[in-house]
Write a protein that binds this DNA or RNA. Structure first.
Lengths: 352, 352
DNA sequence: CTGAAAGCGCTTACAG
DNA sequence: CTGAAAGCGCTTACAG
C-alpha cells in the first residue's frame, strides 16, 4: 500500500525558495513562470531574467498538485478502460487505440492517467468508486466495448469533460466512433451485387452500440432488396456447432460474422462439414482481426481505423478543454468512415 | 492545449459541504474519512455514521490534488518509457511489461500516470523537463532499453522512489532485471556440450546493461573452455550482408545473435548463401521474439519473463512506498531467472 | 511595476 | 470527544 511521501525529509524546491534566492516575492516567481509577466502584468525584463536564471540553476518544477488545486489545468488526460486493457483477451482491442492516444498525447504535451485502480466487478471496471482519481485529470477518455449508461449520464451531469471511444446512445455524451452501419451496408450491398440472395448474420450476444450499428446497417441495406432472404442469430460463447447447424439449415450463400474469432471457428466447423470457403459459402467479418496471423484466412472484413480513432478522441478532448475552442455539436459526436479489407472470402455464389 | 478546468461553474462536493449537511466540522469529516476516527481520535459512532450517511448520499470523492498537497500518498505510480511505448517499433518490447504492471497495479489499487508529455530528443524521452508531473506520483517505474545515467543519479539524489526495469549500473538505483548473463552462459554451455567449438556473437551496437550482460555471460562461459574459438561483432543497423561475410569467413558452427530481428535477417541471408540452418549452422537468439509468428523460424532463444518483470517492479515499488516495509538491499537490486526456449535451431554440429 | 493576501480542498497536530 | 487553525505550493485578483 503505497502511502509514504516522496522525498521525505529533503527540502523541496518551491517558488518561495526561488523567490528568496532571486530577491523577489513568491508571487512574482509565479507570474514569471506563467508567462503572465509579458501581458497583463508588467515585470521588468531584468527582474524576470533574474528569476529565470535562478530557476535554471535549480531543478525546480511547479508542484502539479498545487497547480491543480489552485485551479489550472494539468494537461493530464484520464484513460479509463471498462475491461482491463492489457490482459491478453482485450489487448488486441486496446493496443491500436492506445497507440493513437499515446502519439497524440505526446504531440499535445499531455500525460495520461490510467485508472487501473477502478474495482473490477463481473469483469468490468466501475468508474465511480471511493477515491477515484478522476478529478486529477483535466478530462478523460473512455474505452470499452460496452459502457455503463448510468455512469455516462453521471459524467454528463457533472459536466466533467470526457470523450467516449465508440458511438454511445446516451444523451450528451461526446464520442468519436466508427460508422459500422455504413461499412456493413456497403459489404452487404457488395455481396448482393455479386449475386448473393441468402444472407446469414451471426452477431455477438451483446447490446453494445457498435453491434447494433452493424445489425442495422445489415438489415437496412437488405431491406432495400426484396429478393434477399435473411437469417439472424446470436453467437453464444463457446461451442458454435449448434448454431452452425441452424445456419446450414437455412443454406445461405454468404454469412456475415461479427467477431473475427467466431468467423475463424465457424470456418473451421464448416470445412469439417465439407463446406469449402469461399466456393460454397462466402464469409464476411464485421470486425478487424487484431494481429494478422500469416496462417489464417484472409477474410473479407471491416477494417475500422482504430489508431486514428484514439488520436481523434484525444484531439476532440483537448479541444473541449481549450477555453478558446468550442467544438460544434456535430464535432462532439462523430463517426469515422470504416475501412474495408477486400480479403478473399467474399466471391460470387456458384448457385447465382 | 487543455487548460480549462473540469466542472466549471457547478458547485463541487467538498468536505466542507458534507460537514454542513452532517452538522459537524470539516475536520471531523476528514477524520471519519481517513479512518482515524477509530484509533487516536475518538469520534462517537453516531457522529461517524451520520457523516458516512451523508457521504453515501452524495457523489463525494476526496480531491486527489488536495490530498497530495496535504502530504498523503495518492496511490499513483508514474510510468516513464524512454522510448515512446506504443508506436510499433517498441510495442512488442513494452506490451508484456505493461501487462504485468497493469495487472499488479490493479491488485494494489493504484493508478498509473504515464508520462507521455516528456519531450522526445533523438527518439528518446527526457524525464526531467519543465512542468514534468513526476511529483504527482508517489513513485515511478522506468522502462527502456537504455536510460540516461545522469537522470538516474538525479532521481537517486532527489530521493524520489523509483524502480528501473532492467539492471542498471548506476549506484543506488533500485531495479528488477533479468539475469541475461546466466541465461546466455547456459546457452553457450549447451552449445559447447553439443560439440560446438567455433562461436560467433553478433551483438547490438549499444552500451545498454542488458547487452553487456549477455556478452559477459557469453565470454565468461567460453573462457572456461580453452578449445572454444570466438568471433564477436556488432550489428550495425540496416544491411547485415557485410557482417555475414565476416561471420562466414570465421566459419563458426554456431552463431549467437542478440536481436531476434537480426537473427531472422541473418538466417535469410545465410540460406540465400546456401547455408542450411541448423544443419550447417546453429543459431541462438538472446532475446525473445515478441509476437510469435507461426511462419517464422522457431529459434533456440532466451525467453525473459517480461510480464513478471513488470509485476515484480510494481511490487518492489509499492514496498518502497510502504512506510511499514523496508526492502533489504538485495531486494532493491534483483535479477529474475531468464527462461530458455529450446526451439529448433541449436543442434550438434556435423563437423563435431 | 511588485508585494501581501485570499483561496483551492485536504490532513493533522493542537486547543478546548 | 470535536472544533478552530495552520499549512501543503500554487494562482490570481487586489492593493499599493
Amino acid at each position: 500500500m503505497p502511502t509514504r511521501m516522496a522525498n521525505p525529509g529533503k527540502t523541496k524546491m518551491t517558488q518561495r525558495r526561488i523567490a528568496e534566492l532571486a530577491g523577489v516575492s513568491q508571487a512574482t516567481v509565479s507570474l514569471v513562470l506563467n508567462g503572465k509577466a509579458d501581458a497583463e502584468v508588467r515585470i521588468p525584463a531584468s527582474t524576470r531574467q533574474r528569476v529565470l536564471d535562478v530557476i535554471a540553476g535549480t531543478s525546480y518544477v511547479a508542484d502539479p498538485a498545487a497547480r491543480r488545486l489552485a485551479g489550472v489545468g494539468n494537461k493530464i488526460l484520464g484513460v479509463f478502460t471498462y475491461e482491463p486493457a492489457f490482459p491478453s483477451a482485450s489487448i488486441d482491442f486496446y493496443t491500436p487505440l492506445l497507440t493513437g492516444i499515446e502519439a497524440e498525447a505526446e504531440k499535445l504535451g499531455c500525460d495520461l492517467l490510467v485508472f487501473t485502480s477502478a474495482p473490477v466487478e463481473n469483469s468490468r471496471r466501475r468508474l465511480f468508486h471511493e477515491n477515484n482519481r478522476l478529478g486529477l485529470a483535466d478530462g478523460a477518455l473512455l474505452l470499452g466495448r460496452e459502457m455503463d449508461p448510468v455512469e455516462l449520464q453521471r459524467l454528463v451531469a457533472m459536466d466533467f469533460p470526457f470523450v467516449a471511444i465508440g458511438r454511445r446512445d446516451v444523451d450528451g455524451v461526446p464520442y468519436v466512433g466508427v460508422d459500422y452501419a455504413t461499412g456493413t451496408a456497403l459489404l452487404a450491398r457488395r455481396a448482393y451485387d455479386l449475386g448473393h440472395r441468402r444472407f446469414a448474420l451471426l452477431h455477438l450476444d451483446s447490446t453494445g452500440e457498435s453491434g447494433l450499428d452493424r445489425q442495422r446497417g445489415f438489415h437496412d441495406e437488405l431491406a432495400t432488396h426484396p429478393d434477399a432472404r435473411v437469417w439472424t442469430g446470436p453467437a453464444t460463447s463457446g461451442n458454435l456447432a449448434p448454431i452452425w447447424r441452424s445456419i446450414r439449415d437455412f443454406a445461405p450463400t454468404v454469412v456475415f460474422v461479427e467477431s473475427p474469432e467466431h468467423a475463424a471457428e465457424l470456418a473451421r466447423i464448416a470445412r469439417d462439414d465439407g463446406v469449402e470457403i469461399p466456393r460454397d459459402l462466402s464469409v464476411v467479418v464485421l470486425g478487424e482481426v487484431a494481429v494478422p496471423d500469416a496462417l489464417a484466412t484472409d477474410f473479407t472484413r471491416l477494417s475500422p481505423p482504430r489508431v486514428r480513432l484514439g488520436a481523434e478522441a484525444v484531439i476532440l478532448l483537448s479541444r473541449m478543454l481549450d477555453p478558446d475552442d468550442e467544438p460544434a455539436p456535430a464535432e462532439l459526436r462523430r463517426l469515422l468512415d470504416c475501412g474495408i479489407a477486400d480479403g478473399a472470402t467474399l466471391v460470387a455464389p456458384v448457385t447465382a
